[in-house]
Simulated scan of single mutants.
Amino acid sequence: MAIERAPERTTPRIRLDQPRVRRPRLLPEYDPEAFGRLSERIARFLGTGRFIVWMTFVIIAWVVWNVSAPEHLRFDRYPFIFLTLMLSLQASYAAPLILLAQNRQDDRDRVTHEQDRKQNERSIADTEYLTREIAALRIGLGEVATRDWIRSELEDLVRDLDERRDLFPHTGSHRSDEADR
């Protein structure tokens, strides 16, 4: 009797001790952080006077060229449809880039605000702790004998001794205290 074997697998076994093989993707991969930094740089440039000067220069050059250049060298006739298209294209890209930069700034502001809030909480807790410690020290100092208090107590004792000496005059027996030494 022959033992039949199961057919061998054509697909390799998945090994859990090794990283998975990356599958090819249809969409290009990009680093969102790098793209965000680039969008912030562009948005920062779009918000400068330099950009406005350059944009104004390009538009003036565009219009002057297409009005005064020889007929066969003009690429955008009078209603300047191509210029309008280019400006619309620039605006359609600028708006999302500016929004992306604003969202990233909002995220940074949120993180900064959270860190400031936590720092303020720690500062308040430290201040409350120090306030309690100072109050405890003040209470403790209220119970500490001061130099003036000790002086007044000693003066009271001396007065009491003087009064007792006056009430009980000294008797004639002179005992020597040499034996006590």
Rank of each mutant, 00 (worst) to 15 (best):
I98S: 10
G140R: 15
Q119P: 00
D156P: 01
V64A: 14
I59T: 15
R110M: 07
D180K: 09
D148M: 03
I3A: 13
D109M: 08
W149F: 10
G49R: 14
P169D: 02
D148G: 06
R165M: 05
L167D: 07
D177C: 01
V111F: 01
L157G: 05
D177N: 12
R104M: 11
R159D: 10
I81R: 15
L27C: 04
M1D: 07
R132H: 10
I42V: 15
R13I: 12
I139L: 14
E128D: 13
P28F: 01
R9I: 01
L100A: 14
E178K: 07
R9M: 11
E133K: 15
W65M: 06
T11C: 06
A43K: 00
L161G: 05
R15S: 13
D107M: 10
R5F: 09
A94W: 03
L85S: 09
T112G: 03
L16I: 08
Q102D: 10
E29V: 07
R5C: 04
R181T: 07
A136C: 04
H170P: 03
S39E: 07
R110E: 09
E121T: 04
R104W: 01
F168C: 05
L157Y: 02
E121F: 03
T84P: 03
E128T: 09
R147V: 14
W62I: 01
F82N: 12
S88A: 15
R104L: 15
G47L: 03
D177L: 15
V58A: 13
D177A: 12
E29S: 12
L137P: 01
Q18F: 08
I124M: 08
W62Y: 15
H72M: 06
T112S: 11
E163K: 09
F75A: 01
R151V: 09
R151H: 12
P79F: 00
M86E: 06
P169E: 06
T84I: 01
D109C: 06
P7D: 08
Q90K: 05
P79Q: 02
R74V: 09
D166F: 03
L141T: 00
I60L: 15
T11M: 11
V53R: 13
L137H: 06
A91V: 10
I59W: 04
